[in-house]
């Protein structure tokens, strides 16, 4: 039983580590803020969430596990909000996306609005 628990914890911890590393690789390799945010907000959140779940599982206490699950739920709620805030601020401030970008309907809408303004 303890071996089984240790195995489950080990799998969670290593998976979390791999996701965290890949998120960091994404933050380094992707070409602009907006694409980097994809890596940080998805893989990064999943990575640290798995780690926290592993720690909760390892403790074998209901109270600690409940706290860990609440923490993960909290991260899942806040990570997209944080990414959204930064993306919105960056786009409104005028940081341009990479040249690979094929479509930017948000900038088009803004240009249209500016043209219609007297």
């Amino acid at each position: 039983m303890t071996v089984l628990l240790a195995l489950a914890t080990a799998v969670l911890v290593v998976t979390g580590g791999v996701f965290t590393l890949l998120a960091a690789v994404g933050v380094v390799r992707l070409p602009d803020v907006y694409t980097r945010m994809h890596a940080a907000s998805k893989a990064g959140t999943v990575g640290s969430g798995l780690m926290l779940l592993a720690a909760g599982l390892h403790s074998l206490e209901g109270a600690v596990l409940a706290r860990a699950v609440a923490g993960v739920a909290f991260f899942l709620l806040t990570a997209p909000v944080a990414a959204h805030l930064v993306a919105r601020a960056a786009h409104r401030a005028g940081y341009r996306p990479t040249r690979l970008t094929v479509l930017d309907e948000m900038a088009e809408a803004r240009r249209r609005a500016e043209r219609n303004r007297p």
Binding site: Y34, H38, P80, A83, H84, A87, R88, H91
Partner: peptide, 11 residues
């Protein structure tokens, strides 16, 4: 949307 594959809501 932000937490699903390949999409991120901006505004």
């Amino acid at each position: 949307i932000t937490l699903t594959p390949g999409t991120l809501s901006v505004d």
